[in-house]
Design a protein around this nucleic acid. Structure first.
Lengths: 239, 239
DNA sequence: CTCCGGCGATGATCTGCATCAACCACTTCA
DNA sequence: TGAAGTGGTTGATGCAGATCATCGCCGGAG
């Protein structure tokens, strides 16, 4: 297992026209502030599969996802894994201010992140209420998603879990302006299983079942929701 | 089913010497601010079992728990229930700023809450970075708890779930200065089941099993952790 | 070209927890 | 004093999903 990824200090185009700006905490900043924050941050890239940081390690930085997708997960001592969420462009990693990382994060495909030292960020943000409000907004959304996921894990069947996951994933992609006929699923079956509290076999079987029922169509790397309404009603827990 | 509780506008002693002050968002306020916030808020009480607010209703207020315990839950259309968390004194309800309640909350035993209209609170907080930081702190903690619960629901056995719950509950009570030989469990078996993604029977059986093993001792309304170390290791997921 | 390793699908079997059904201890109320 | 309700425990049985095993596909290395 790769423990650390390749970091390069490569800077992309200015924060001003960052593609994730509208979704990230940066949306709350004016141009001056944006430039100021850019001074404090560096841009880092990781190769597919690389670990950005690991649970229980000292957290020295915050990250904001610029490009790519990460899996956010926790491990039990006997190596059972639970993927808490997938992080998308605009997502902020490190909302909790504890001294150690609460979870591990690694790259699914290549990712690019903005990194800011915790201390710098703390002094930068502490007298900028608009930024703090924006962070509260993101934190609230994240919390709402976590609570929805708690319902999914605690009270839904395998089929409902898959359906909810597909709908939730579609909506999140839409939220960052990625819609389209085909719903891309860049993560592996094992990732989906560890996210939904299932095994890889159950995930596979459930996908097959939905395809046999004409509800979805499976491609390499994604699915098409042939009958989106049906997926939605399964996802809602009706029938 | 009771839908709304008995509300009385009864004010208790000033916010200044509120027993929950140290745990609540109010810890970030000085005496002047505290008095100012007190102007905007009212104190409300609910009887045991009363619903404070219900999922999907318009959210007009924030609440801060002063006394008592609430269950925070979501319902599926077919009435499956998932208790997302239990709210204790100091907990803030409504961190997410969405227009509608994300979940329902009802009283376990009698509760007393501080209620503030969302708008008043928004204008009060928007230029008070210390308060916003405090809210971020609470939100971060809440998020961390939710993520831990996601691991519990997704990847732990019934016995581990019960053990984790007992340890987590003990630690939360300790956090607000309620420790003691006997660990009080004011919620019913059904609440515990709906919190841990189990049935009432499995909860009961697992408690019995732990008692038979000499690990805990069951009382009406609580348990004693005879072998706390054992409960902790079960809770950690080590065999 | 073949070999190999990663990934996904699928069949057979097993099992942890749900489900169904009593039953008990208390409490409330007639 | 007993009938009915509430909350919890326990036993018997069933099933959804885990586990174990096999197979096929595909892409990269030699």
């Amino acid at each position: 297992m790769k423990i650390s990824g390749s970091r390069e200090g490569t800077h992309w185009q200015s924060c001003h026209d960052c593609t994730a700006r509208g979704f990230a905490i940066c949306a709350a900043l004016n141009n001056t502030e944006l430039r100021e924050l850019a001074q404090l941050s560096r841009h880092v890239r990781f190769e597919s599969g690389a670990t950005v940081f690991a649970q229980a390690n000292i957290a020295t930085s915050f990250f904001s996802v610029h490009k790519g997708i990460l899996r956010i997960y926790k491990l039990l001592p006997d190596s059972r894994r639970q993927i808490v969420s997938f992080a998308l462009p605009g997502d902020f990693l490190g909302l909790s201010t504890l001294p150690r990382h609460e979870f591990s994060a690694d790259a699914i495909g290549r990712v690019a992140l903005c990194q800011v030292a915790k201390e710098s960020f703390a002094t930068f943000s502490e007298n900028r209420p608009r930024l703090l409000c924006r962070m509260m907004e993101l934190a609230g959304r994240e919390l709402a998603r976590a609570q929805e996921h708690i319902v999914l894990l605690g009270r839904r069947s395998a089929e409902e879990k898959i359906a909810s996951f597909l709908i939730g994933w579609r909506d999140r992609l839409n939220g960052i302006g990625r819609d389209g006929e085909i719903l891309t699923l860049p993560m592996k079956r094992l990732d989906i299983a560890d996210h939904l509290g299932l095994t890889i076999e159950t995930v596979s079987r459930t996908f097959s079942k939905l395809e046999r029922g004409g509800v979805i169509q499976i491609f390499a790397g994604g699915v098409v929701l042939l009958d989106a309404a049906r997926v939605e009603s399964l996802s809602a827990g009706v029938s």
